[in-house]
Every structure is written in C-alpha cells, then in structure tokens.
C-alpha cells in the first residue's frame, strides 16, 4: 500500500521535517518506507530520510508493509501536503 505526494515547503525534507516523519513512522507496527525514484529509505530514521535530499517540488512515495499502518501513511502524507506547517516565503 503506497501513496505519492509532492513536497511543497521551501526547505524540503530538512532535518526538522525528516524528524517529524520519523517520529510519525516510529509509531507504525510494521515498516514504513519513503521512495524517491529508485531509492528507498526507512521512514523511521531521520538520517535515512535526510539522505534522500528531497527539495521543494520533489515527488516521493510513502509506502507501508502492513495495512494496519494505513492511518500512519495518511498522517505522513498530510504532513507533507501541509508543508509541515511551515510558512513559505
């Protein structure tokens, strides 16, 4: 189960936003992945998410291994769509 989402905040998946994804993914029972192109990283690790170096405008795929984690998938997609609540400008 997966969902595509485009990064809208100016800073992209920077340290703070990556940390927020890792925090959300950390609550999942099974594994959560972030894909960019053919690269795939563990969403539960801030460092791993950072290594994708996703700037504004990048499209990523959020993927879960188990459907029980669907609410967490939704939560992550929401955060990305919302630009992590950051003010652009």
């Amino acid at each position: 189960m997966s969902k595509d989402v485009t990064i809208v905040n100016d800073l992209g998946l920077h340290a703070r936003s990556a940390a927020r994804i890792a925090q959300a993914a950390g609550k999942a029972a099974s594994r959560v992945w972030i894909l960019r192109g053919d690269e795939m990283v563990d969403a539960k690790s801030t460092i791993d998410v950072l290594t994708l170096a996703c700037g504004k405008g990048t499209t990523i795929t959020v993927k879960i291994d188990h459907k029980a984690d669907a609410p967490i998938l939704e939560r992550i997609v929401e955060m990305v769509e919302d630009g992590f609540g950051e003010q652009n400008g």
């Binding site: 940390a19 890792a22 925090q23 563990d42 539960k44 690790s45 801030t46 460092i47 791993d48």
Partner: peptide, 9 residues
Amino acid sequence: VMLLNDKML
C-alpha cells in the same frame, strides 16, 4: 535529540 535515537545511528 531525535538523531541520538535514530535507527541509523
């Protein structure tokens, strides 16, 4: 603080 407990580290 989050990085301290990061899986990768």
